[in-house]
Nucleic acid binder design. Sequence first.
DNA 1: ATCTACTGTAATTAATCAAGTTACATCAAA
DNA 2: TTTGATGTAACTTGATTAATTACAGTAGAT
Lengths: 146, 146
Amino acid sequence: MRISTRFSDSIHILAFIEVYKDIKLSSDVIANSVNTSAVVIRRLMGVLRAAGLIDTKQGSAEPKLAKDPSEITLLDIYFATEGNKPIFELDKNTNPDCIVGGNIQEVLGTYYEDAKIAAKRKLNETTLEDLIETILVKQKYKNSKN
Amino acid sequence: MRISTRFSDSIHILAFIEVYKDIKLSSDVIANSVNTSAVVIRRLMGVLRAAGLIDTKQGSAEPKLAKDPSEITLLDIYFATEGNKPIFELDKNTNPDCIVGGNIQEVLGTYYEDAKIAAKRKLNETTLEDLIETILVKQKYKNSKN
DNA sequence: ATCTACTGTAATTAATCAAGTTACATCAAA
DNA sequence: TTTGATGTAACTTGATTAATTACAGTAGAT
């Protein structure tokens, strides 16, 4: 498949909404920052709205975060966009009549689950606020070099 | 994309080789356990050989683990099959002239890296030996119920 | 009231990727 | 030398996702 950038782009949208919360934000303006089409942005925003992360109103270009950025973690955004998708895929079609084939996927599932939880714990340690602060510091550094 | 089961199938192959190390193992026999074609198995075995996890000899059906199963971790197998593939995809095409678009992917990259390492540390905790023992215990449990 | 600009969403297209398949050269061993 | 393997390249098929097209519904200014 084409690799999915939904998670990254969704984080981008939320950060953008927060950073530019004082100006009018049409899906077109956001799309210009993410470098995609306005429809793709609106589609992702629909997902974020369904997950309770933003509030939008049809017809008006005023998306708002539904929570304080310190209350939104990368994991919240991950769940919103990817749900419970595994990060390591099992092969559910192995031969059940073989000792290995009949047991391995179930066993692997528990190991994968442990690894997935470890990754998600890390995602849960970072808030949207942390991310935005880091972005702004990085930008200051860029400016100081010119 | 279709989700890739290379990692899971490669683990399967290695476990199968170890469990049935005393009998002749053609790619056809292994394919029957993984429930795929012999060519797919040989392709994966080529990758595992290149990574130094197995030894094979063209023409003879005698694949062997190149290391003791207690010396092969799930992470070794992950690296062999997936290399340094990210588990969370960045969008490398965001607008560089925007404060958010110009900095976010680089910042996200570090957070993703932390999460990826956390997951890999977990994968590195489990050896092929552990996996096989768990499979065999699970099989014993199944048998006892009949 | 009615433009204009915008959101929400469905349907289609195009690109990408992995497994499956076909084909065949090469090697091992009886 | 025949049979049964491996190794690998080339092509096909299926699945997935962003991009695109189209359009109905809403908000707000004039």
